[in-house]
């Protein structure tokens, strides 16, 4: 309990370097899975750790100890955590639960609203063309979802490029990328240390869709890269990146791409040879997650024994 309970919190610190490695060096589909599962598992383990620490504080409150028939002497003698630590853990736990519930509630409402919008759009083949000179294209999740493209965007692209764009957006819908992103962001809401994982997942779903678009259309990855670049230069909106994300980008290797936005990174990845299916990142991620789960389980078991001892 003394060490194990803190391990999931410590392992969460690996999120920033881990997210960077998975996003840049791993095949995007596998990377998205690893990032999403990591965010959910590490969030669950670290929240459980906070809960265990908070319980060690609660059982020292005499009325509560009386309800559980726990011996205060035994609890205090064993002293699994300082009372101050337990109080801080309790506060963090409440904040994590609140943030995660609020984020999920909001996302469910937004997804339901998007599904309603999608259902209201007359688009028998799943494609809606907006009569709008501003170039724009996006996937609207729903049952079924819709690909929405503006006439301004279609005008910028030739026929082959339009097919790539549609294949990219359909890949988002077919592979339920909004669910991966929502789950990763749910984990990050519960444990802010995991934000790099969620941020990386929003990037790897784009990479995933780019690679699918190349595979579905001509297999020409350079062509996809040029399409993404062409569309981005046509949109050329004001930079929307927050300084925080810029700083996350700054940490790490000093290459021309560090600190760059997602579009140049996607284009660079498409112009580079495809990333092979490497097993090492998956194994290392699995080991980290296993360590987090085992240590939480270990801490929970310790607390269980302590309560049994105190209740005896």
């Amino acid at each position: 309990m003394h060490v194990a309970v803190y391990l999931p919190l410590l392992l969460s610190l690996l999120a920033a370097p881990g997210a960077r490695i998975l996003a840049e060096r791993c095949e995007p589909r596998l990377a998205t899975w690893l990032l999403t599962v990591s965010a959910v598992v590490l969030a669950a383990a670290s929240t459980a750790s906070l809960a265990l620490l908070a319980v060690t504080g609660l059982i020292r409150i005499p009325p509560l100890a009386a309800i559980g028939h726990w011996s205060l002497q035994v609890v205090q003698r064993d002293d699994p955590a300082e009372l101050s630590v337990a109080v801080v853990a309790g506060v963090l736990l409440a904040a994590a639960a609140f943030a995660a519930a609020r984020m999920m509630g909001r996302r469910v409402r937004s997804l339901a609203r998007a599904a309603l919008d999608a259902a209201c759009v007359p688009a028998p083949d799943g494609l809606m063309i907006l009569d709008d000179p501003a170039p724009d294209a996006f996937a609207l999740p729903g049952l079924p979802g819709r690909v929405v493209v503006s006439t301004g965007m279609l005008r910028v692209l030739d026929e082959g490029e339009q097919r790539i764009l549609l294949a990219h957006e359909r890949a988002h819908l077919d592979n339920h990328h909004y669910l991966f992103v929502a789950l990763a962001q749910f984990g990050a809401a519960a444990n802010p240390l995991l934000r790099p994982l969620a941020h990386a997942a929003t990037y790897t779903v784009e990479r995933w869709a780019d690679e699918r678009a190349a595979a579905i259309t001509t297999g020409d990855r350079d062509r996809v890269a040029r399409t993404v670049g062409k569309a981005a230069l046509a949109v050329r909106r004001t930079p929307a990146r927050s300084p925080v994300l810029g700083m996350i980008g700054m940490i790490g290797r000093r290459s021309p791409l560090s600190g760059a936005g997602p579009v140049p990174r996607r284009v660079a990845a498409l112009l580079a040879p495809p990333t092979g299916r490497r097993i090492a990142p998956a194994l290392i991620t699995a080991a980290v997650l296993l360590a987090a789960v085992v240590s939480t389980g270990h801490a929970a078991l310790d607390l269980h024994f302590l309560l049994e001892l105190a209740g005896a």
Binding site: R107, S110, L111, A114, D136, A137, F138, A139, L140, P141, M153, L165, H168, E169, H172, H177, Y178, V181, A182, Q185, V205, E206, A209, V228, A231, A232, L233, V235, R236, R237, T238, P239, A240, R241, G261, P262, V263, P264
Partner: peptide, 12 residues
């Protein structure tokens, strides 16, 4: 957050 846009804004 629920819309997956083809390309996002570019900084200079």
């Amino acid at each position: 957050a629920v819309l997956t846009r083809f390309v996002d804004g570019l900084s200079s």
